[in-house]
């Protein structure tokens, strides 16, 4: 990707939407969903670690799914516990990969970013992969997104073996 296609101003980035397919294995998917159920009635959250390319974009491959504590202990909001984020970053460095995104549950709404998700995504930058597990229906629904400059686009999620 041409670097001159980017304009930066603080945390506001204008970069082309790139849509990697987020690839998880079945064990990672099950760990995410189990953590979401375990967290009820609160939202649950975690972090995704995996390789990035030279342009900082995730390849879409997820090396490990980290489960984290929701410091908010809330059914409406989440904040990844700081110490858990530190552990995830240390683990990523140990594996030679990066923290590439995060995931959280929506206990009673669809697997689509809320207004709060879009607002708080400012802090995470344009390369962050956002995944949401909805527990609204009997069967959990997992979806992935990019959120850039307040704009949300869904990305494909491939769970091997599901």
């Amino acid at each position: 990707m041409a670097s001159d296609s980017r304009r930066h101003s603080g945390l506001t980035f204008e970069v082309p939407f790139v849509e990697p397919t987020i690839r998880l294995n079945l064990a990672q998917y099950r760990a995410m969903v189990a953590h979401c159920f375990d967290g009820l009635p609160h939202e649950a959250c975690g972090v995704l670690i995996g390789p990035i390319k030279d342009d900082f974009e995730s390849t879409g491959d997820i090396t490990e799914v980290q489960t984290c504590r929701n410091a908010d202990e809330s059914a409406r909001t989440y904040t990844v516990d700081n110490d858990d984020m530190k552990r995830a970053m240390d683990r990523a460095l140990e594996l030679g990969v990066e923290v590439v995104g995060g995931w959280h549950s929506h206990t009673h709404t669809d697997a689509y970013p809320s207004a709060t998700d879009v607002e708080k995504a400012m802090a995470l930058g344009p390369y962050w992969l956002h995944m949401i597990v909805s527990l609204k229906q009997a069967e959990p629904v997992l979806r992935g997104y990019r959120i850039r400059g307040g704009r949300t686009e869904e990305v494909d999620v491939d769970v091997a073996g599901l």
């Binding site: 939202e43 959250c45 972090v47 908010d72 409406r76 909001t77 989440y78 904040t79 990844v80 700081n82 110490d83 984020m85 530190k86 970053m89 923290v99 995060g102 959280h104 970013p113 809320s114 207004a115 709060t116 998700d117 708080k120 995504a121 802090a123 995470l124 930058g125 962050w128």
Partner: peptide, 29 residues
């Protein structure tokens, strides 16, 4: 391994061999 919000925030002392990690604040609703 210490969150500087629980130390002295920006006034937290650093010494040789300390490693400072800047982490994203991941939150939403």
């Amino acid at each position: 391994d210490d969150d500087i919000r629980y130390l002295e925030a920006l006034d937290t002392k650093v010494a040789d061999d300390d490693v400072i990690s800047i982490l994203p604040a991941a939150a939403g609703g």
